[in-house]
Nucleic acid binder design. Structure first.
Lengths: 197, 197, 197, 197
DNA sequence: ACAACCGGGACAACCCGTTGCT
DNA sequence: AGCAACGGGTTGTCCCGGTTGT
């Protein structure tokens, strides 16, 4: 019981990293076997199929990311600072070995856009959660007078997300430039000059 | 034009659309056969392998995108207007059936980040070309006095690219919001308030 | 020990029904687990292998059938009546839930003809027992004057068995006709007109 | 085209023999590969799945059997002689290498009673054809005055079929006795004494 | 000469019966 | 006695080359 839970978590952690770097179709069971040190039977004892494993692995990684971002938000007191903390945390995510492949939301969105409806659904839901969080923070900031009341919270939230995601997606393939650093700087300035009053 | 050239182009067009929506590993030769209406022999007569086909299809789609963007740039007279034209053109790309899957650069970057070195190389090169183009335009704008001379052309170019790519990548999975419209508006404002003088 | 014996019998009963309807290869351990409500460990605690379980399950079902037929024989006084009772009992077997799959002898014979030597041996032995029983009854009938002395007991026994088995085997797949009823009627008439004197 | 048809037929012939002796579940693709000398790709080029192969193989063997029986019927002039010819032909089938495993109808009926609906359907249909053929012959015999008009054609047809099938099924597992010979003799006598007038 | 066909072999995911360890 | 791991075996798909008929 205890041992099983531990290995289950281990499988999820390792396979999540694989899926996030090589993609769902690019990660074979042989890869997962090699990454976990288990044989096929050992894996199929915990997950009925590769699909179920992938879904759980995605959830695992998404929850991990969410908790980091929520922690960052919780550690800040005012809405503007909450946004800045969230941005900084996201931009720092890539140095974490768990997120070496980038943002699981975007990666899954790009790969499983057409192929995997179940994953697509989770991605959709994930972005909705994220967008909702930002919208809530910005709305509160408007209410408290931190942000201008002419601001469209939804638009601002979308702006932040696409900038962060675009930077994260390109951080691996851009040569000289540092997309995440640029995004961080750009969004800080955006918040200061366009949102704050 | 020869008949052979025509079918070769047709294979490229059809398979490029497949690769761009379903990914490289997600598109089997059976899919390509179905999409082109040709048998395996007919395809292998023009391309030595699936890899070669994929590489050529990527080039085909990338060149198509490049020419659209370059046309937009050529149609504008001043650097700021050139940027705006490029942005608008990119944001309008998704409605083109050839680019239904999104930006081939980003799609390929995300899927073949670790798996396919040859494709990765082309993606890297593609982004470099794009970044260089923007940098050149912005540099010219600074020289001509359209843009502030305190502006870092590379940073600004990166900012524009990541915003556009992030928006394009999320335009398929975002529910209510319209990422490409938000990106367009955001970049227009960014150019007006942060770059222009 | 007592409890163990009970569960062992339960496993045998349930798995025998499975093997008799779905066959040896068609019944997986997962099926047996579902049918018995036990886990794999609980089954392997009583039987060393699926093979051993199958052998015992066959024996169990065969003995059950044998005892029904022997009871029928014992309840009749004269050889002709013994034959008729045996025939009627066999034809009524299919309505018994334990024999829903038909005659275990024939089922096993057909499926494991070439695959499973150990089972084949038991089937061979089972038919020999059955044939011997009929031959003995018929021989006794000849001796007592119930049957003609020109009768070949072995031939008559074989005739009865193949008719019964053929009817049982086809009783599941024949549409309108009722093979077991026809067999019963045919054999009654056969005994009356060809065997009796 | 011609070559392909030839190998397709060869696959059907060989696999039909396999299925008829070892059963559907007992015959793996590895067995079929060994029997045909082809690799998996070569087989799956002609059949989409093992199921489709099994269905076609069954049809192939069933048609072969049907044509033998129909030929025998066609070679006889009167209904009684047609029945006798059919019986003799069926009893001689086992010596044919194609039918070493016995009657495909009964084998499939016993094994795939519960497991394979598509096969079960074909078996059902096959028995219906056979039963109809016998019924028609007997009916004609009654009309022509060869058989008694008190005879129930359906019952008589069923009697003949179950006797033949039972004998065929047991011909492999019976030790000393010769079920097919006994069946042949029994049915000849049955026709002479019970059907003819 | 050339395109369609046929066959090859590696590999995919998944399930199986089985055995230790706890 | 039960959970966890095993590893070989299952069907099926993949991309690709050699052969063959036209």
């Amino acid at each position: 019981m205890r041992k099983g839970e531990a290995t289950r978590s281990e499988i999820l952690r390792r396979s999540a990293a694989l899926f996030n770097t090589q993609g769902y179709f690019g990660s074979s069971l042989a890869d997962i076997m090699a990454a976990t040190g288990l044989k096929k039977g050992g894996i199929y004892n915990h997950f009925a199929s590769k699909d179920e494993l992938a879904l759980n692995a995605f959830d695992c990684l998404f929850e991990a990311m969410k908790s980091r971002l929520l922690d960052a938000v919780a550690s800040a007191s005012s809405p503007p600072e909450q946004l800045l903390a969230l941005i900084d945390t996201f931009c720092g995510l890539r140095s974490d070995p768990d997120f070496q492949g980038g943002c699981p939301l975007l990666n899954t969105a790009v790969e499983s856009d057409d192929a995997h409806p179940a994953l697509r659904e989770r991605v959709h839901n994930g972005f909705a959660q994220w967008h909702g969080l930002l919208k809530r923070i910005i709305g509160q900031g408007i209410q408290q007078g931190d942000f201008r009341d002419t601001l469209d919270a939804g638009h601002a939230a979308t702006t932040i997300i696409i900038t962060l995601e675009g930077a994260m997606a390109l951080s691996g393939v851009f040569g000289e430039a540092d997309p995440l650093g640029v995004a961080r700087e750009h969004l800080h300035r955006y918040i200061d000059t366009e949102m704050r009053q």
